[in-house]
């Protein structure tokens, strides 16, 4: 590292150039984090993709097994794609549709707002496993809900809320709604309340104010909320196992991958995981590009 001689000159000049492009010594602080992510995220993902092409019979055999339903227990892995998609899409649509009006009504000063937010946060903290097992207790044939409905004579037979898609969907909504709500509260409070007033003075009725001013401004936030809710709901499997019936109607993709993994079938487990990623990213891509088509131009909240 001597500064003299042609190589030293070269090094100095190189360092000078780097510095001019913004590579100061401080930048190296980023190395531990970046290195960790490369080693323990990027590498495993690549490794998993590679593994999925190392099936027992040729490079594509893991995927052929997956799509020909030749996996452990043989419950129909192709159908799992649809099941997972349906569950996740339904859950995130319900979450966003419920979260937007609640958050919108919370934008002003509401009594006990903080307490309400705290209560809504509880299921998010409890996590999917607890909510699923509580739902199983609560929604089951002898749970309180069915008991109450039987008691008031609304139903003759206990409603089958457990062991099928309904129960899973309900528990996904219970865990996902708080998150969606929290995000939407952030987005609604980011909109200048003056815009609503301005629209009112311009002659817009409350419904028009919502649909013509607030809603378009919330749309980007809603898209993000939908995407993140979808991500959360898509990968969950405790609810599908505990409240649903993972041997058939609610056998989600992550359960398929897990089963293969627990039997030591790494290529097919990886193939299932890759299929999951592809499906999920495809949905996110579709939603985000649809937003681009729907809505051009700047979308940031009401800045004066």
């Amino acid at each position: 590292m001597s500064a003299s001689g042609p190589s030293g000159d070269h090094l100095l000049r190189w360092r000078d150039r780097a510095r001019r492009r913004g590579v100061t010594p401080t930048v190296w602080l980023v190395v531990p984090g970046a290195l960790f992510m490369v080693v323990f995220f990027v590498y495993p993902v690549c490794y998993g993709v590679g593994l999925s092409f190392q099936g027992t019979q040729g490079w594509s055999s893991a995927y052929r097994d997956f799509f020909a339903d030749r996996l452990v227990n043989n419950h129909g892995s192709r159908r799992s794609i649809l099941i997972t998609l349906e569950l996740a899409l339904a859950a995130s649509v319900v979450n966003v549709v419920l979260a937007v009006p609640i958050a919108y009504r919370m934008r002003g000063r509401v009594r006990a707002k903080r307490a309400l937010i705290a209560v809504v946060l509880v299921p998010m903290t409890l996590g999917t496993v607890f909510v699923a097992s509580a739902m199983k207790e609560f929604l089951g044939p002898s749970g309180w809900l069915n008991r109450a409905l039987l008691g008031i004579g609304a139903i003759e037979q206990p409603l089958p809320l457990v062991g099928n898609v309904t129960g899973v969907l309900l528990s996904l909504v219970f865990t996902g709604l708080p998150f969606a709500f929290l995000l939407m509260v952030g987005y609604t409070s980011g909109i200048d309340p003056g815009l609503d007033k301005a629209a009112a003075v311009c002659g817009a009725r409350p419904a028009q104010r919502f649909w013509l001013v607030t809603f378009p401004l919330l749309l980007p936030g809603m898209t993000i909320t939908f995407c993140l809710s979808f991500v959360l709901a898509f990968g969950v499997f405790p609810s599908a196992t505990l409240v649903g019936n993972d041997a058939g109607p609610t056998r989600v993709l992550s359960k398929v991958a897990y089963t293969e993994y627990s039997y030591g079938h790494y290529p097919t487990a990886s193939a299932a995981a890759v299929v999951m990623a592809v499906v999920q990213l495809a949905v996110l891509g579709l939603v985000l590009s649809a937003r681009g088509l729907l809505h051009r131009g700047p979308t940031t909240g009401g800045k004066g």
Partner: peptide, 18 residues
């Protein structure tokens, strides 16, 4: 406000950003 037939100019403009 929407039925009063008035118009208002706000200090921070309050233009609809979208």
């Amino acid at each position: 406000p929407e039925q009063r037939g008035i118009a208002m100019v706000f200090q921070n403009y309050a233009l609809f950003p979208h």
